[in-house]
């Protein structure tokens, strides 16, 4: 039942939290696991957190639908899976919309409140905060320093409208390959590259095949911590406050974990003589950003265009 909790009492609730990330990843051990420990340490809250990492509750889009219907209480979601319900959130995933994670968090802290309220009205879910996931970069069979280097390479992008628009904006030939078949497809040469944050690329072993990493950092990867309104309706105010505070406090620690883990993987890559790491300052960022801006200024219309331009203006 969805009867509101009586004033001052903390109802006993077991919250189910889902994520696509496996147990080995920072967003698990420096994210949802920390959240569980800190919430359960406050015994008077009467909250327990039941963790389902590694897509155990289904793929991203299906889990988000579960959050909307109240079948999942909390989930970690990228913008693209939620964009079918709230198209504007896809704009946050546009290539080079944000310069870096500092720019992203600055924007969230200044404009997030209105944006998340609008999101809440459209989806009946509440974004508590965002946790860093890593900058998306290319790993391919060849180094990529400037947009022209993408020509002649088939790069796998996730098959959603925003990611495919990113491919076009950067001048890449996107190929559609289901994630289940990606490793084999890269190995057999069906595609010659893919884009993901460094940590995710390493975790999924794509770096076993692709020996050139180019730190284009073309997209800020974040996971929004999104809660079902059906769940919030059942919670007392102290419970909601404690949950919001815990999620917000973890943001900085989680970011440090992701940065450390990224640096650890990169150090390994740099030390490996069979690999090339094209560093950030070796990338023609101006050329990529110029190309992406020219594309998105034409691609977006209406509210989406206004949002995109306001993000770029705050850069």
């Amino acid at each position: 039942g969805n009867t509101p909790a009586p004033e001052g009492a903390n109802p006993t609730l077991a919250l189910k939290i889902g994520s696509s990330q496996p147990e080995t990843q920072p967003n698990f051990h420096c994210g949802m696991k920390l959240l569980k420990e800190r919430i359960e340490a406050q015994a008077e809250l009467n909250l327990t957190i039941d963790m389902f990492p590694n897509s155990q509750l289904g793929p991203d889009a299906e889990r988000f639908a579960g959050v909307q219907s109240g079948d999942i209480d909390i989930d970690l979601q990228g913008g693209s899976a939620m964009s079918t319900a709230f198209p504007k959130i896809g704009v946050l995933d546009a290539a080079y919309a944000f310069n870096d994670i500092d720019h992203f968090f600055k924007w969230v802290d200044q404009n997030g409140k209105d944006f998340f309220t609008e999101f809440n009205t459209a989806t009946n879910t509440t974004i508590l905060d965002a946790w860093y996931f890593g900058m998306r970069t290319f790993t391919a069979t060849k180094p990529i320093r400037k947009p022209e280097d993408l020509a002649g390479l088939k790069i796998r992008f996730p098959n959603t409208p925003q990611f495919l628009a990113n491919a076009e904006a950067l001048g890449a030939n996107a190929v559609a390959i289901a994630v289940e078949e990606l490793y084999l497809a890269l190995q057999q040469g069906v595609a010659q590259g893919q884009e993901n944050p460094v940590v995710a690329t390493h975790a999924q072993k794509f770096d076993e095949i692709l020996k050139s990493a180019s730190l284009t950092n073309h997209q800020v990867g974040v996971h929004f911590v999104v809660v079902s309104d059906k769940t919030l309706d059942k919670m007392s105010q102290p419970q909601k406050d404690a949950l919001t505070k815990a999620v917000h406090d973890i943001r900085a620690e989680n970011r440090k974990c992701v940065d450390d883990e990224t640096e650890k993987v990169l150090t390994g890559w740099r030390a490996d003589s069979t690999r090339t790491v094209v560093e950030i300052d070796q990338i023609d960022r101006a050329a990529f950003i110029g190309k992406a801006e020219a594309f998105f200024n034409k691609h977006y219309t209406g509210d989406n265009l206004k949002l995109y331009q306001s993000i770029r203006a705050s850069a």
Binding site: I177, A178, E181, L184, A185, Q188, G189, V190
Partner: peptide, 10 residues
């Protein structure tokens, strides 16, 4: 076809 990278098993 699978081994030469022409197509995936599906």
């Amino acid at each position: 076809g699978i081994l030469s990278g022409t197509f995936t098993p599906t």
